[in-house]
Design a protein around this nucleic acid. Structure first.
Lengths: 159, 159
DNA sequence: CCTTGTTATATAACGTGTTATATAAATCGG
DNA sequence: CCGATTTATATAACACGTTATATAACAAGG
């Protein structure tokens, strides 16, 4: 088995490593969602959660709130509108802005997620890294080792 | 200014957040490299470093060492071969495997990076998060705040 | 009021990751 | 030693992020 060079290089490849860990967490989270029989991609939940939490708001504001670029949000919104969970209508006072809000179906989806899915995900992630402490690189190594030993979707909320 | 929902959701959106931080670190690292007048993309350095450290090795082994998929490595290798920094030749004993090694130009590039670029990057990242301790989410918040306050490429190795 | 500039969203082109599948070489069993 | 399976790489199609730029609506000055 080959040495993990990204880990070995420490701070030098921290960006690559954090991105990689983030992708693994997202992939495992997707598995949890799939197992629960929901049709929405894991990556879309933060957007739905943002709209739910911050109320109807424009695309640009949503981009700020999520820390991603405006074109990224525009594309995600378009997909979620196609799925029927979001609605985007021009603001009455400014036709340039498009106010994004949840449809009834979208609200139902978020309510279900709040009830059943998000607690499960949060518990699994907390199980993985809630007790961690110490230097960053050590914690990252613990997360990688933890995921390799037992993926997120196999970590039960109530063991 | 809108609330940062990805941060606010804590463990629930940890994957998204780590991916986002990784992307920012990579983008800042790219700026450092650009400022030093080098033509290679930041994302390619881990691959070059892996070949330099582990010696000539096959694409599949490289994928293992870097923790990414084989097709991803195959594509990166193709680009670096086009740039003239890597060479990929069939293994003498097994024509399926392609052994990847540094060209003279590639070796020169790596030697330069080791000398001038990597220490600079490592120092900047260490300046950002070398002293961190405590729970993971707190450290992530400190990294985000630190990057917002002073990007990696403005953090000098010798202050 | 009309030009000019600014702001909000949309679109295009690209980078880099993924999974699924095709192709070619090696290996194994009859 | 030939056909079937396995292994290594290549290719295709997609996801999701970026930057740069186009379009449309608003705002402000002459």
């Amino acid at each position: 088995m080959a040495e993990d060079v990204v880990r070995a290089f420490g701070f030098l490849s921290l960006g690559t490593r954090m991105k990689r860990i983030g992708e693994r967490l997202q992939a495992d989270t997707q598995k949890i969602i799939d197992e629960m029989g929901v049709e929405i991609a894991a990556s879309q939940y933060p957007l739905l959660a943002a709209v739910d939490r911050l109320g109807p708001l424009a695309i640009g504001d949503l981009a700020d709130a999520m820390g991603v670029s405006q074109p990224g949000v525009t594309r995600s919104i378009a997909q979620l509108v196609d799925l029927g969970v979001l609605r985007a209508e021009p603001a009455p006072d400014d036709q340039r802005r498009k106010l994004v809000s949840l449809t009834a179906q979208g609200q139902r989806l978020v309510d279900e997620a709040k009830e059943a899915i998000w607690p499960r995900i949060e518990a699994a992630v907390a199980d993985l890294c809630g007790k961690l402490d110490g230097p960053l690189l050590d914690q990252l190594a613990a997360i990688e080792d933890g995921l390799a030993a037992l993926p997120l979707n196999r970590r039960e909320p109530k063991p």
